[in-house]
Each structure stands twice: as C-alpha cells, then as structure tokens.
Simulated assay, not measured.
Amino acid sequence: MKIKSFSTAIGLVLLGSTIYLPEIAQASAKPSTQVAQRRVVGSDIDSFTAYPVQRLDPGTELFFVLRGTPYSRATLTIPNAVQNLPMREVQPGVYEASYMIRQGDRISENTVVRANLQQGDRISSTRLQQPLVAGYSDRGFQSLSINRFSARSVQQLAPGTTLNFKLLGTPNATANFSIEGVAYNIPMREESNGVYTGEYTIRSQDYFPPAGAAVTASLQSGNQVIRSRLDRELIAGDDGSSNTAEIPLEIITPEENARVSGTVEVEGRSAPNATVNVNVQATSSVAGLFGFERNILERTIRADEQGKFSFAFKPTISLPGTRYEVNLSSSRGDRTSEETLVLFQN
C-alpha cells in the first residue's frame, strides 16, 4: 500500500486525528433495509496538529497542520504571540502554517493554540490537543492521537453479519465506536499497547440509510476527546475483490506507537508462504520547512511454511519525534490483507 503525499512539494507530519467534541444525535427509527455504505464527507475541522519542538525559545519555528472542509479560510491564534495567522491550503482540505517565536512572545507548554475554519457564514473552531514541547506528555499532559480506524469489509449489511473494527492510537485511553442511526458508543477493548478492537452484529431492525451511515470512533483520556471516521467502506467491492478478512496478517513486534532507535526489526505472521509487500515511510519536520516525507524501505518478502516473516530497516532521520509508518500487504492467490504499524523516533 502506497503512502500519498500530504503536500504537492513535500510530505506533512500527521500526528493528530479527527477532533470532534459534540455528542452524536440519535437518529429517528426507520424501516429496515440493507444498502451499500457510502462514506459521508465531513464539513468541519477534522484535525489540528503541531510538530513538537525541543524548546520554546526565540528563533524556534512552530509548524501546524489543519485538516477539514476544503476551499475554506483557515487561521490560527497563539495567545500572547500572534492573532489570526493565515494558514495556506496546500491541497484540498489540508492547511499549513508556521510561526517563528520572537523576542517578547510569552509561549509556554500550557499555551492554548486555537484554529478557525470559515466557509461563508459558517465558522468552526478547535484547540490544539497535544503539547508544543516534545516529551511534555511525560510530565502530565496526555497527548491523544488516532493513527488509524479500520474495519474488515463484508459482502453485505445483512442481519447476523458481524462488523469488526480496529483502532490504533494512544494507549491507556477509553475507546468506542458509533454507527450513525444504528448503534452508539460501543466500547472497544485495548488488546495490546494502543490497539483497540470492537465488534457489532447487525440486527434485523437496523437501518443503513441510502446516504450511508457514518461510522466513527472516539478516544478519550480525562477531559480530552478526539474522533476519527472509518478509513474504508464496510461493503466489499461489487466484484467481490475485497477479501481482507480471509487471510491472516499480524505484526508481532514491535508494539504499536513504540519508540525506536537504531536498526528496527519487525516480525509478523501471515498465511504460510504468503507474499508480503513492505513499505516504510518516514515523516518529519525541520526548521524552515513545512515538513518532508521520505521512503525508507520498499521490498517484497515471503512468509515461511509457518507463516512467519521478518525484516529490518534503519531510520535515516535522527530527529526526535519522527513518525515511521510501516505498511504491510500480504497476499496468497486472490486473498489479501493489509496492516499498518506506527513507530516514533526516540
């Protein structure tokens, strides 16, 4: 699975996920019918993130990324520093801005940075839900992030079908998911460090509207809540080509969101003699640039007769906080499966 660049010139660091605080309103009951699901496009702010820096001294450059409604006007405000700083839309729905800390600015680890997104008369606002200083979370600020919210595709949304969901994000938090108009706030279990799973079995009275039911997950720690939409369709393609549930694919080590340094060794398990495509992408930011994305490794390996496989890569970027996304695609015959592992540079 290839990684798409978040910018026309350079990649963007993407540490955050969808921020959405209001509760979902309960939809009124409707007649039961099964229809294909279509993803619902949001019209607000999806995420607002920053690249953590080592210190908040004059001359340090802060870099921000906002994702939301495309073709809008985005601004950010840093109290005691800058008001309504314009953010540039580098691709539809992705806005960037940087700010160089000046003498006289009063910015601390507790500074609340806010962003606005305006389209016509509608204005959406949010606050940064992560620390500006790298490592500040270790001193009491729990920075929440959702790296991925996915589901196994099914052939039809029929009564008795079980939908399986998986969320990769900040460990030791509370996770749940909701299917708009069907079920709300279904708890997810933390199976391992930052890996949450949950399932829902469709009932005969459940209704999936023609416009598509939005499936979202939320992650909460203390009074912080972030949300993310499902990253794929629930229904398999009309040609039945989606068979991600038919072949096993598991990353054994390292754990999700682990901190790494030096050579990183990855071990996993799939079907015996399966072909495993590996792609490792690094995303980071440096002073004076909006960020960059670099391909670290791209190769094809084969699982052994027990389905085990392993590979290693050596990070070429030594910036603390660099995000490594390890994408695996396993196939045997016409069956495929995909997994993603997110790691961070020490």
Rank of each mutant, 00 (worst) to 15 (best):
M1W: 02
M1I: 05
K2M: 03
S5G: 02
L12G: 10
V13K: 00
V13R: 01
L14K: 13
L15P: 10
S17W: 08
T18A: 10
P31S: 10
S32C: 08
V35G: 13
Q37C: 06
Q37I: 07
R39A: 07
V41G: 08
V41R: 07
D44G: 03
I45Q: 12
D46E: 14
A50Q: 15
P52K: 09
D57I: 10
F64L: 03
L66E: 02
L66S: 03
T75W: 04
L76V: 07
Y95T: 05
Y99R: 02
I101E: 00
I107G: 00
A115M: 04
N116K: 11
R122A: 09
I123Q: 07
V133A: 00
A134F: 10
S137Y: 06
R139S: 08
N147M: 13
S150P: 02
A151S: 13
Q155E: 13
Q156C: 08
G160A: 02
G160S: 07
T161K: 02
T162R: 04
L163Y: 08
N164Q: 11
F165W: 12
K166Q: 14
K166D: 13
K166W: 11
T174Q: 11
S178A: 11
V182I: 15
N185I: 03
N185Q: 11
G198V: 08
E199P: 00
F208I: 08
A213D: 08
A217F: 08
S218W: 15
S218D: 14
S221L: 07
I226S: 06
R227A: 15
L230F: 12
I235Q: 06
A236G: 12
A236C: 09
D239Y: 08
S241L: 05
S241F: 13
A245M: 06
E246Q: 15
P248D: 13
I252F: 06
I252G: 05
T253G: 12
E256F: 12
R259P: 01
V260C: 07
G262W: 02
G262Q: 04
E265P: 04
V266I: 14
G268F: 05
V276P: 07
V276A: 01
V278T: 02
S284I: 00
S284T: 10
V286L: 10
F290M: 09
G291L: 02
L297M: 00
A303W: 04
D304Y: 01
G307P: 12
F313D: 14
K314I: 01
P315H: 05
P320C: 11
P320R: 03
E325D: 14
N327I: 10
S331M: 12
R332T: 11
R335P: 02
S337C: 06
E339Y: 02
L343K: 07
N346R: 04
